[in-house]
Simulated scan of single mutants.
Amino acid sequence: MKPHGRWSPAAAGGQTSDPAAAVNRHAATLRELHRPGTPLLLPNVWDCSSARAVVAAGLPAVATSSAAMADSLGYRDGEAAPVGLLLDAIARIAAAVGVPVTADLERGYRMTPAELVERLAATGAAGCNLEDSDPGTGELVDAGRQADLLAEVRAAAHDQGIDLVLNARIDTYLRPAGDPAALLDETVRRARRYHAAGADCVYPIGLSAPDAVAEVVAAAGAPVNILARSGGGLGGLAALGVARISFGPHLYRACRSHLEQQVADYLADVAPVHP
């Protein structure tokens, strides 16, 4: 049976007669790790090796990056990778580590809410990101439509007995710059609406100004996930009450850049020998 099919004990992270219970234990742990002011640090991974490195560093959970995983599998970001291939990769990561795994599923890869819950849970992952941009066009999805999707996923999880941890990504700050006050108001509006629909955490990706982060943290009504910026500043985010810090594809791109530089250095070294 393939990892992205129905329940597999190995995919759930160990040998057990009740793999759903194992996933739910991981979900409870993952949810409890969202502590405002003491944020869950998630250097996003793309394969088993990077996931094991995160765990070896002492971090208590693992998150995947859709962009990094897609590129490592040979596809562009934006739900271009076959969903079965992506879920197989997530299952291998979940089986390789003994900690909760949360998966970046973009906007669901065109799966129905029931299918999304069933197939994700079969990988052993305990949570997922769902974003409010259309993967095909990049356009922001109507807030009501996105809230409906989140509510349907939450209801499907309840029906299947899966305690899924939902992180609702808010893409308002990925749009061209507009009036800062209006942008902040829309972000808070979406955060509240998504939390009411069943999201455990909200993720205004691209939000970075400390005053705006503090306002979203105060007004969202839910734990807030912020994307880390290069150069650190994690302590500052913790002081603002952030509950979760992601890295997106930054680490993957840094690894690729290092590889490319190493290869270039080797080629430059042998060039005089092999003109």
Score class of each variant (00 low, 15 high):
K2N: 09
K2W: 05
H4S: 07
H4A: 03
H4Y: 14
S8Y: 00
S8T: 04
A12Y: 00
T16F: 08
T16W: 10
S17L: 13
V23K: 01
V23L: 11
R25N: 08
R25A: 14
H26S: 15
A27H: 09
A28P: 06
T29G: 03
E32W: 12
D47C: 10
S49H: 11
V55D: 10
A61P: 01
V62G: 03
A63I: 03
T64M: 01
T64L: 01
S65T: 15
S65R: 03
S65K: 04
S66G: 02
S66W: 00
A67E: 14
A67D: 11
A68Y: 06
A68C: 00
A68T: 00
D71P: 00
S72Q: 06
S72T: 06
G74I: 06
Y75Q: 13
R76A: 14
E79Q: 10
A80C: 14
A81I: 11
P82D: 08
P82V: 11
V83D: 12
L85S: 06
L86C: 10
D88K: 05
I93G: 00
A95E: 01
A95C: 04
L105C: 11
E106S: 07
R107V: 02
Y109P: 09
M111F: 01
M111W: 04
T112H: 07
P113S: 09
A114V: 00
V117P: 00
T123N: 00
A125Q: 02
C128A: 06
C128S: 09
D132M: 13
T137N: 14
G138Y: 07
E139Q: 07
V141N: 05
A143P: 12
A143E: 11
Q146D: 04
A147S: 13
D148H: 13
L149S: 12
L149P: 08
L149Q: 15
L150Y: 13
E152N: 11
Q160K: 09
G161K: 04
G161I: 12
G161R: 15
D163Y: 01
V165N: 08
V165C: 08
N167M: 08
A168I: 11
Y173H: 13
L184N: 03
E186V: 03
A191M: 06
R193V: 10
A197W: 15
G198P: 11
D200R: 04
I205L: 08
G206D: 02
L207R: 15
D211W: 12
D211F: 07
D211M: 07
A212M: 09
V213D: 14
V216L: 03
A218T: 09
A222C: 13
P223C: 05
V224G: 04
I226T: 02
L227I: 13
L227V: 14
R229Q: 13
L237S: 07
G241A: 10
V242C: 07
A243W: 04
R244M: 07
S246W: 13
G248I: 01
H250V: 02
L251A: 02
R256Q: 15
Q261D: 10
Q262M: 15
V263G: 05
A264L: 13
D265G: 05
L267I: 11
D269A: 15
P272Q: 05
P272N: 08
H274G: 06
